[in-house]
Amino acid sequence: MSASLATQLVNLFASLLLLIAFAMLAQRRVLSLIHLFAWQGAVLALNTALVAFVTHQHHLYYSALLTLILKVILLPWILHRLIDKLNVRWDVETLVNIPTTMLIGVGLVIIGFNVAMPISHLSETVTRGTLGIALASVLLSFMMLITRRKAVPQVIGFLAMENGLFFAATSATYGMPLVVELGVALDVLVGTFIFGIFTFHLREAFDSLDIEHIEKLKER
């Protein structure tokens, strides 16, 4: 496979990642959000496998496999169970209306890319052009974290942010050492469990998943 085709494919995956990040920003339904998250994981796994194939870095195959298992199968399954248990398949309310959110998102993409540009110029890898997009999707997920008011979409936003970071790592430095990656994966898994437990408690305490209720906890 020629280097230029590989670069093009990585660019394609990067823009798919961005597209999915935007789709998540625009999505009202929790169930579709989870599907989108799974798709994002799949794109990520494919991209990692591609980079592994092009650069002959075998440890990247493992991390692609790990991504596949964790982010395409396991986490979506956990989230599915979570929303089944909590019975929250309804539409998500957003704090800001969706076109505005997306407009701000476009601004974030511009900023993300410009900030990443000097770093991408330093990098020598085939995938350096995508660093900006990775950063942009991190910012977009952050944005989703802010604009959602229910707990489950926030969890998904957090996980999507991690996806962006992972993509940045793959594109800038051909991935982190496997040990670090395993640790991060474990962290994410544990984080999701904690979030799950947290949401259960949230509902028990306030009979709602609206995180605005947490504001009541502050001391006056």
């Binding site: 597209l19 476009v106 511009i110 052009g129 995508t130 997009i133």
Partner: peptide, 14 residues
């Protein structure tokens, strides 16, 4: 916005 984003992606990547 998607179309604008397509334009932006093109400017960014290519």
């Amino acid at each position: 916005l998607l179309a604008v984003l397509g334009l932006l992606t093109h400017v960014l990547l290519e």
